[in-house]
Design a protein around this nucleic acid. Structure first.
Lengths: 257, 257
DNA sequence: CGGAGTGTTGAGGTCTGTCAACATCTGTGG
DNA sequence: CCACAGATGTTGACAGACCTCAACACTCCG
């Protein structure tokens, strides 16, 4: 397919800057990078392992920062709380991602990081990390990669909110989540959304009703299916089809009946 | 300046996590930080000065990365181009900001960085920077601060797009721009927008017509004024009033007649 | 002068938010 | 085990905000 060729040729990313069309190799390279990152950190830097459960706060806005957290397992949300009380989910994080790297230069955290699941994070002190980097410069590279990936992800979110319709945003969100899992070697045919419709809507810049309607329409179009009874379990028979749908809404505002 | 007084008077409740209503001291601290950053970089790292003019590309998506650029003067936009041809302005940068830091870990740039003005950037090779940081660890801190600020800015943009109405987004954009200038000691009573309505709309996630209408309504409400004939020069008599307007739209969806 | 580029404004349609009713699931307590 | 309350999710009707299309004004330049 020339789409593939095009993608391979130009390093830029597809839709809304989202993860390339995930050929296995890219996915595997990603998995290897995570593994080696975790290995390197655990070998070279003093760290403290911490088990967290659903709802636990890894750190809270306002706390003195100075520690970074590498996620070994579980999934997490990063939430900002503005002074007038509005809160917004600004990022979702998985194994291999860093928490707290977005407040490096500051004296305190600017967000809350909350576990959406049981998981394990490794707490690393910033100064220790920098220190260890004198012996192992690759640690810096790894950190910088993580931060620049975070910037890129944030931009993707922005682009998604700016240019996609409601339904497409929901589809894009699901695809994103599925690919995050896929790249980490987890199963994606049946994923558990660990967020309420309200939270998803908050993250995507839309109301919970619109999210619900979007999911229903995607299900009617057989792009996704619901498993379990809680309607929190979603199966994605064909991730590529979801991507195609997102693409399609751009070219010709195709509506789901 | 009574704008300042007004700001000092009201207990400054920021918006969308945006920079607090800029009391002088914070603004001055910011200016000092920029100065010392530039000084440190120019003293400690090998760099190449480069003069750019409006429309010049500092780097382009797809080019091999490896260099960072510190902005000494001028203003710049960072643009992503997706394969299907849509492009999106994802960031605006001024003196003291870094360009290219968002692609640190990657082999090539993922965006274009384009001068909107005549200016000067200092090109620094990443390896040289890391190397210099062995002598002067503060260089790393500075870099990390810049990156985490970038993440925060991106999040603010996201929150702005997600939670503010069209008019409020335009107002917020103007205030942002004015504060960026103010913190750098430049005059803000009369600013020149170096972007077309279409570009502003693209950046804010709305159409050029909506931007135009928003500007007109703000002008009718005397929150801004137009100078010059091109309608690109905007004066902001009272930045605090603009902030207040943005805040106001949150509490009670106040419309500008 | 005339054309291209840019900006403004109006009319009408569509998408999404708002409000509301109802369905479903979960956990608690009798 | 069942009943019940609260949280969560779905769906409809309606209204309002924003986009689309279109006409027109202004500026800059050749």
């Amino acid at each position: 397919m020339n789409a593939m060729l095009a993608t391979a040729a130009r390093p830029a990313a597809p839709v809304a800057g989202l993860p390339r069309t995930t050929p296995d190799e890219a996915s595997q390279a990603f998995a290897r990078r995570i593994t080696s990152t975790l290995a390197m950190v655990s070998e070279r830097v003093a760290l403290q392992r911490r088990i967290v459960h659903e709802g636990d706060r890894v750190y809270a806005a306002g706390e003195a920062s100075g520690e970074l957290f590498v996620i070994n397992s579980g999934c997490f949300k990063v939430v900002t709380l503005s002074p007038d009380g509005r809160e917004q989910v600004v990022a979702l994080k998985f194994r291999g991602d860093w928490l707290g790297a977005d407040d490096l230069g500051h004296t305190c955290y600017s967000c809350d990081a909350i576990a959406m699941d049981t998981g394990e994070v490794w707490a690393v002190r910033y100064v220790d990390l920098i220190d260890a980097a004198r012996q192992e410069p690759a640690l810096l590279t790894v950190l910088h990669q993580a931060m620049s990936r975070e910037i890129a992800r944030e931009r993707d979110s922005l682009m998604s909110v700016c240019t996609l319709s409601g339904d497409a945003r929901v589809a894009n969100f699901l695809r994103d989540w599925a690919e995050s899992l896929a790249r980490r070697g987890l199963r994606t045919d049946r994923i558990t959304l660990r967020m309420t419709r309200a939270e998803i809507g908050n993250y995507l810049g839309m109301t919970l009703e619109s999210v619900s309607r979007g999911l229903s329409r995607l299900a009617r179009a057989r792009l996704i299916g619901f498993a379990g009874k809680g309607r929190r379990e979603v199966c994605i028979p064909d991730v590529a089809a979801l991507s195609a749908f997102v693409q399609g809404t751009l070219a010709a505002p195709a509506t789901l009946q």
